[in-house]
């Protein structure tokens, strides 16, 4: 049991043409941890998420959650293993409301099909009950993330910071056990970032969700992470506690760009 960590990435490599974005990268994350991935631009952080989440297939190596192999699965199959994510450049459904965006996160838990949907004619029809039940759940998330005012607005009309939170809401709606956050604080105001830190802690503490975080803001990373991995050129530089990583000379060098 204890030999079997919650989530492991084992020697994954990925190259695009001649460019090797990930080189035999390995790490593991324990259940209930907030684990941060840091590294300069182009270090391979987003590629790592894309390999975990199934947008890219890693060339070699394996990804496992709770001992189950998920390497090379499609994104929707990975999502079925209770892994959810947000994107670096917000990927919301721009012509849908906040409600509908988050409700989409409930997709895997809903059961309405084409035929039952067509017959949504009275309050107790199967699809109507399915809808109302999950809309209620979405409203809980909307309340949790303070999105009440944006509930029925098109997401494309919301300010950037709110869009990021709405995307977080959609990821939460899938009821993940592992949440991948790709630069959630980028572009937020200081105030919004404070709220975000508060929510990320809450998500872990109250909902028990394990979090892997890509973040540039070292201050924020230091504040909330249990452990950190620093990567550069697709390889692990160092992994450990906040202290160990931020004081590591290699990390300082990679960040300050000195040689």
């Amino acid at each position: 049991m204890s030999n079997n960590p919650f989530f492991t990435v084992d020697k994954i490599s990925k190259s695009f043409g001649g460019l090797q974005a990930l080189k035999e990268l390995s790490f593991h994350v324990n259940k209930g941890e907030i684990y941060s991935v840091i590294g300069p631009n182009g270090a391979g952080k987003s590629t790592l998420f894309n390999c975990i989440n199934g947008i890219y297939k890693p060339d070699t190596g394996s990804v496992k959650i709770q001992g189950q192999e998920i390497t090379g699965l499609r994104p929707d199959q990975v999502a079925a293993h209770k892994i959810s994510r947000t994107f670096q450049n917000i990927e919301l459904f721009s012509n849908m409301t906040t409600m509908d965006n988050i409700l989409l996160g409930r997709h895997m838990h809903m059961k309405t099909g084409v035929f039952s949907a067509s017959a949504m004619l009275w309050k107790n029809s199967f699809s109507a009950k399915d809808e109302t039940e999950h809309r209620r759940k979405v409203d809980e998330i909307i309340d949790f993330l303070d999105l009440q005012a944006s509930r029925n607005k098109l997401v494309s009309q919301l300010p950037y910071g709110i869009q990021k939170i709405a995307e977080l809401g959609r990821a939460l709606a899938t009821e993940p056990e592992l949440l991948l956050l790709d630069e959630p604080a980028a572009g937020l105001t200081n105030e919004e970032r404070e709220d975000l830190i508060f929510w990320i802690r809450d998500i872990r503490d109250e909902l028990g969700i394990t979090i892997i975080l890509i973040e540039h803001n070292i201050q924020m990373v230091s504040e909330i992470s249990d452990r950190i991995i620093a990567i550069n050129f697709g390889k692990k530089l160092v992994e450990g506690t906040v202290q160990e990583v931020t004081n590591n000379p290699d990390v300082v060098r990679a960040y300050l760009g000195a040689d």
Binding site: N53, I55, D76, A79, R85, F87, L92, F93, S94, H107
Partner: peptide, 12 residues
């Protein structure tokens, strides 16, 4: 229609 990548990441 709006974002196939996000849709598949949400389990579609």
């Amino acid at each position: 229609r709006d974002s196939d990548i996000a849709a598949s990441a949400a389990g579609i």
